[in-house]
Design a binder for these strands. Sequence first.
DNA 1: TCCTTGATAGTCCAGAGTAGACGGTTAAAC
DNA 2: GTTTAACCGTCTACTCTGGACTATCAAGGA
Lengths: 169, 169
Amino acid sequence: MSSEIRLTPTSFIVLGLLEAAGEATPYELKQVVAAGLGDFWSIQHAQLYSEPERLAKAGYLSERREEGGRRRRHYGVTAAGRKALRSWLEEPTAELTELRDPGLLKLFFGADPKSLAEAQVPVHRRKLAEYEELQTGMGAATPAGVRLSLVSGVGHEREWVRFWSKLAE
Amino acid sequence: MSSEIRLTPTSFIVLGLLEAAGEATPYELKQVVAAGLGDFWSIQHAQLYSEPERLAKAGYLSERREEGGRRRRHYGVTAAGRKALRSWLEEPTAELTELRDPGLLKLFFGADPKSLAEAQVPVHRRKLAEYEELQTGMGAATPAGVRLSLVSGVGHEREWVRFWSKLAE
DNA sequence: TCCTTGATAGTCCAGAGTAGACGGTTAAAC
DNA sequence: GTTTAACCGTCTACTCTGGACTATCAAGGA
């Protein structure tokens, strides 16, 4: 509740995950990210340790540290944190996707389309299959936002497979 | 040709652009990026000043500085730079796209799909139109890689328009 | 001729994010 | 009990970001 800090997408990821989880350690956050969210917004594991600390110092999270052993830190969202998350969610954004595709970059600069495509097709196929499997595994309890994000992910992976497959011919 | 440095995507963007341009100042690179490449891999203008300096110090670029006035620095690719670029281009990559979409992130965490979609549809439509216009403006001299990257961009923008339009209903 | 204005061009810095090495802790199996 | 593998956390060097700030130059008007 002291210094004002800039809230970045990373901040909202931490706030959003903690809001859903109730309370969690950085390690638990790391697992949640690895289980799915990481596909939509990659984040370094070290940040899941440093960012909560930063947010706690600014009053957005509460921190409880274990006494012995691993001395894990458990974080929870405070009222201020909840409010910041709400107002971020309520504000629609007109920002565009930031696309960073190493393969596309090479293609742009003149790499051989065919050999590039041959490397890209299988990984995109695999990703697509992974998404589709996640989709069939979702129950009625899955939040709408999570479901819709996956729909988007599937659409884009299909597009990639289409694109690279054509180049592979 | 002294210190070894890590070559990042930023490095290859600078090398690739300079290879195509022959020789250029950071400001000129900035304009090229703004004219198109920036859509595929965003890069901060300050980096177009610092990165060439870093590359020059490592021997990948030559540097010529104007004597008077603005003291512009003109950079060109050295043999070592050309070699590094070539071997990067020759190595296909299996890395996946890093997708960073602020709107999708909000959706994931429970933002209202409809109002989000209403903000997203117009900007994606505009981007799509911009890409299509670029496409029609391309001549026979346009490198294949540039043309193909645009094809990919169009495909993804269409996908975004499709996705958000459906949510806007 | 000098002045204003706007486009052109370059520098700087604090702080956020990345990549990955490294080191401790714990439970289970042998 | 000791080994082993999984679990968990910290650290550092470096890259990248966002944006403020300053300087240079060309053109047109007074």
